[in-house]
Design a protein around this nucleic acid. Sequence first.
DNA 1: TGTACATCAGTGAACGCGCGTTCACTGATGTAC
DNA 2: TGTACATCAGTGAACGCGCGTTCACTGATGTAC
Lengths: 225, 225
Amino acid sequence: MAKATGTTSPRERYRSQVRAEIKERAWEQIADAGASALSLNAIAKRMGMSGPALYRYYGSRDELITELIRDAYRGLADVVHAAALDGADLAGLAHTMRRWALDDPQRYFLIFGTPVPGYHAPDDVTTISAEIMAALLDACAKLPDDSLGEDFDRHIGAHRAWAGDHPATPAMLHRALSFWTRVHGALSLELAGHFTGMDFDAAALFAAEVAGLVEPAPGPDRGKR
Amino acid sequence: MAKATGTTSPRERYRSQVRAEIKERAWEQIADAGASALSLNAIAKRMGMSGPALYRYYGSRDELITELIRDAYRGLADVVHAAALDGADLAGLAHTMRRWALDDPQRYFLIFGTPVPGYHAPDDVTTISAEIMAALLDACAKLPDDSLGEDFDRHIGAHRAWAGDHPATPAMLHRALSFWTRVHGALSLELAGHFTGMDFDAAALFAAEVAGLVEPAPGPDRGKR
DNA sequence: TGTACATCAGTGAACGCGCGTTCACTGATGTAC
DNA sequence: TGTACATCAGTGAACGCGCGTTCACTGATGTAC
């Protein structure tokens, strides 16, 4: 008979340790050669085990990848959440997300990179995604409720199911989506190396893209003609 | 002895026909299963040939992929160029790029998706990239020279080597990079399916992101508080 | 505390697969005289 | 126009590789009496 729930037997503890090490090695392999090169046999070899041994811990390669994806989403949601609790504003959240992405670009791309035709992420990542979105909306709610463009405000105000019951105005919904788009755009171009060879500072472009969403726009006499 | 250059022998014509068909089948395979699944043997099978036959046309799998990447860049540059000649403004170019991407998402991701660690694109794509950038800068030059943010204007004005000898102001350089970032951000999130399940119109978000770069921002009394 | 049994981690052999790539060869197409 | 030769597309067999995954088995660890 199993022990009372809440207690973990030595065997259970060992199991989760090994599962954790498998994932660690998997991340190393992904960082080295990309997710498409991830192989159970190679992980086993790195751990000094035989290939089939891993089937005690993961039913298949796909099951492992799915868990890695889930962990990656979870990790991003956690750092965003932590930053929000720390009082970060929208620009702070952007900075947090960028750090997280730079920390392991291939982890970022596992989630937001090229989709594999036919593969469908598990349902619970949608939940985690919504959690992140909610944090962004919270941050938007602390800014002045300026419009970024009324056409899309109208549209998004009428299609807000994805925001759940968050009490955001259309302008806030708009701002959160623009934020996400710009953060992802600047970040993924940077991480994919599309700015190498161009001599400007990717961090500066990133900051500028976010600043455009946060700072009040200058008056009508802005810029030099 | 070879014929005078300019004329093509039947054999040469046949060769380039077969090379073209190989690429066609390659694109089909990429569209079906992603670039990592591209295999010379599978292409040969689809063409009713044996695997080794393809080595008459491409020295290796990598050589084929490199040419596909080059062709993809070339194709994007061509549609952008054509749109520009047609008098398209910045919003028009954005629309053109979106259409091109939606036409074959995996082709888009071959260029702008997850980078394969260790792989380096051939040098000439940098040239094609610069060509696209120049078209964007031209379009920016036709807009009012409003600043999107003076901090980054200053930075980019001091790091403009990537723009070659294009006579763009710092605000234009800034606008072109923001354009590229936002287009890529909205587009790649849409193509990767990150908006599925959210019920808004991806095209509307895309348009809004671009509009923010094109339309003069509303005055200080913009939006509703 | 000691013995009998059940659980379970890990092994090694094996299966079938598809990959990229090399090689010696056949047969058709084009070229030179 | 016809013959002799060179070029070159395509074949089939083969090599070595690593993959995911199944299976019967060994041996250590934990459990029950």
